[in-house]
Design a protein around this nucleic acid. Structure first.
Length: 620
RNA sequence: GCCUCAGUAGCUCAGCUGGAUAGAGCAUCCGCCUUCUAAGCGGACGGUCGCAGGUUCGAAUCCUGCCUGGGGUACCA
């Protein structure tokens, strides 16, 4: 309806003497077709005040001229009426326009689908956790945000590759392997293979999950592996705390054995755990990019460093290799290779992003025109240095180049029993898996995207779990289930009394309604004598019509919360209509038309929820 | 100090691509089930849009400064 109205206004402007000589497209771009705040003003409003400057006329005069132009549009009496208030032109649509809009919706296979972002070829990276432990609640926000964004962008025609960067290189992987090894002690004692003598130890990764990991390792280990493990334990000097360095007093050969035999198990097991959890949230990655395999094993970091040196963007000082990032917008230069010879995390990150830009499609062209990362606000300081590196490598023109984009999300606070728990590393952690088990995937996904990523999110476990009207997820799902229930009842009315109740509609008639919703079928939608119900139905259709612009805006601003808000509005308006009038009534023609409306609502809600990765149940 | 996000109703948040009397949910109070799911609907109550300037015909929205709170400011990963 919005699109149609805009086109109508365009035609009217072009045909009007008053606007002759003015740039109509510019005028239309300067204002938007919006919803009047006060419903008494009609269904749509056009504010012409922004045109005053260009036209050098007073807004009320312009509004009157536009209203006149619209009034002289051929056939308008049957479609809408206009009125002016100050600089506003208010438009009230006639029922036929709503009926046609409904007809349009029922004939559209993918509601809200559009091509607004068809030019985008985007690589979207998010979550990207180390495979050193379970995902925590904060990861859940990036997972929900990222996956919803992927769905929304694709609905707008964009090509998107969602990718997970697996940080599986570096000392933290050695730490987890050693932690696993340390945790084999108890099971080995239980099995009588090790003497139970006191041993002062500290665990680099203290979580209880490491114990499970150790038991899992032993369960699948060969006899030779177990013998080797016992060998390490027996030669260990029992000399007190072992956590000071990364070697834990282990002989080099033992350390090497652990790295070779234990680390792959830890890595693999934890990564698969993360993958399964994400899958249970219906968060779908196309690619899992391994830091170790893709960057280190293939020498990509080394090659990238050479390029920086050659181009003069990297220099040696104090025995370290530095990136000249200060000259490129960062607050200072950054270390790429430490004086000890180890490459920094930043070096790998740069190599990874370099690699993102170097990827090519089948025609040898750059595969992506936009690289987007979703990061937590705690990584904010990384933006400037990574941007600087991308400029240095020639991928960006300057540090404001929109080809590289970081979506920053504020952090998540877990609220348990009404108290905030900061997600600090030392505190007791509730894992994402625990929360999903507790409140369900739908609630987690909806809560994580229901508000702007710019605001810190309090995730209240008790509230998310509550199956009542405190919980917006259930509110929306309930509306969808209600739609499904009405259609079910229409086909197969519940038989409660002795006299059988005939169906409100046959399977065939319902099929006809969806396959070929003619104007004649839909025309009886509005009642002759119920203005309240009619107004609510019209309002509902205006809202359903807004799915597409809502999705486009959410895609452009990378804000899925707009869609979350939208589905709540649709649900609310549907509940209003449900209470204002009967869907299944005595008038068969009206019943059928209103069933069509219910189908449109159901499909809109299902589509909106699908864009958020939330299920749309048919009964609750 | 610097960078960054936020500050809107008692609480949690929309609105911020400048436009009509600033919205929703929760909470509190009052109503609505003999008929399609009451996990619902209606009504009432509730606001100096952090403060002060500026730009503009017009500012919650843009700019500047200040205040308060979160995050960041490593040859850590």
């Amino acid at each position: 309806m919005e699109g149609w109205l805009k086109a109508t206004v365009h035609t009217a402007l072009a045909a009007s003497d008053f606007f002759t000589g003015s740039a109509i497209d510019e005028l239309l771009a300067a204002t938007r077709i919006e919803r009047p705040r006060d419903k008494a003003h009609g269904h749509y409003a056009l504010n012409v005040s922004p045109w005053a400057r260009q036209l050098k006329k007073a807004p009320p005069l312009i509004a009157e001229a536009l209203a006149d132009a619209l009034r002289s549009t051929v056939g308008m009496e049957a479609l809408f009426s206009v009125a002016t208030v100050a600089g506003f032109v208010n438009v009230t649509l006639k029922p036929i326009v709503f009926t046609r809009a409904l007809q349009q919706m029922l004939s559209t296979p993918d509601l809200g689908k559009n091509t607004a972002m068809a030019h985008e070829a985007m690589l979207l990276e998010y979550v990207s956790a180390n495979p050193t432990g379970p995902l925590h609640i904060g990861h859940g926000r990036w997972a929900a945000l990222g996956d919803s964004l992927v769905r929304i962008l694709r609905h707008c025609g964009a090509t998107v590759t969602p990718e997970f960067y697996v940080n599986d290189a570096g000392s933290q992987m050695q730490k987890i392997a050693i932690s696993l090894w340390l945790r084999t002690r108890e099971p080995l004692i239980e099995a009588g293979k090790l003497p139970d003598v006191p041993l002062a130890m500290e665990y680099p990764y203290p979580g209880a999950y490491v114990t499970d990991l150790a038991r899992g390792y032993l369960a699948q280990a060969s006899d030779a592996d177990v013998q080797a493990l016992l060998g390490i334990w027996q030669q260990l000097p029992n000399t007190g705390p072992l956590a000071e360095d990364n070697t834990y007093g282990l002989q080099a050969s033992h350390l090497a054995w652990i790295t070779q035999h234990v680390q792959p198990f830890a890595h693999q097991t934890l990564m698969v755990e993360q993958q399964q959890l994400l899958a249970s949230l219906d968060v779908n990655f196309e690619a899992w990019f391994s830091e170790k395999e893709m960057l280190y094993d293939r020498g990509a970091v080394e090659v990238m460093l050479q390029r920086l040196k050659t181009t003069g963007f990297a220099y040696e000082q104090d025995g370290a290799l530095w990136l000249k990032s200060e000259a490129l917008g960062d607050e200072k230069d950054r270390v790429l290779v430490k004086s000890g010879g180890q490459k920094t995390y930043l070096a790998a990150d740069i190599a990874y992003h370099d690699q993102k830009y170097l990827r090519q499609d089948d025609n040898g062209q750059p595969q992506y025109n936009r690289i987007v990362n979703i990061w937590g606000a705690d990584h904010h300081g990384y933006i400037a240095r990574l941007r600087a590196a991308m400029v240095a490598l020639g991928h960006l023109t300057d540090n404001a180049d929109p080809k590289f984009e970081i979506v920053l999300g504020q952090l998540v606070n877990l609220v348990i029993d009404g108290e905030r728990e900061r997600m600090g590393k030392r505190r007791k952690m509730l894992t994402l898996a625990d929360v999903v088990d507790d409140v369900g995937a739908d609630a987690v996904r909806f809560w994580m995207v229901k508000q702007s990523a710019d605001t810190a999110l309090d995730f209240d476990v008790d509230l998310a779990k509550s199956a009542n009207n405190d919980n917006p997820v259930f509110y929306v799902q309930y509306a969808h289930a209600r739609c499904a229930s009405i259609v079910r009842n229409a086909l197969h009315p519940p038989q409660t009394s002795d006299t059988p109740t005939p169906p409100w509609i046959t399977e065939d008639a319902l099929a006809a309604l969806t396959a070929n919703p003619t104007e004649a079928l839909l025309a009886p939608l509005f009642a002759d004598d119920d203005d309240t119900a009619n107004a609510e139905i019209a309002e509902l259709l205006v809202l359903l019509d807004r799915l597409e612009p809502t999705v486009i805006y959410a895609a452009q601003t990378r804000s899925p919360h707009g869609v979350a808000r939208y589905v709540q509005e649709v649900a609310a308006q549907f509940h209003k209509v449900y209470n204002a009038c009967r869907i299944l009534g005595e008038d068969t023609a009206r019943t059928h038309a209103r069933l069509a409306l219910v189908l449109a609502v159901q499909r809109t809600l299902a589509q909106g929820l699908a864009l958020l990765g939330v299920s749309a149940p048919n009964s609750m």
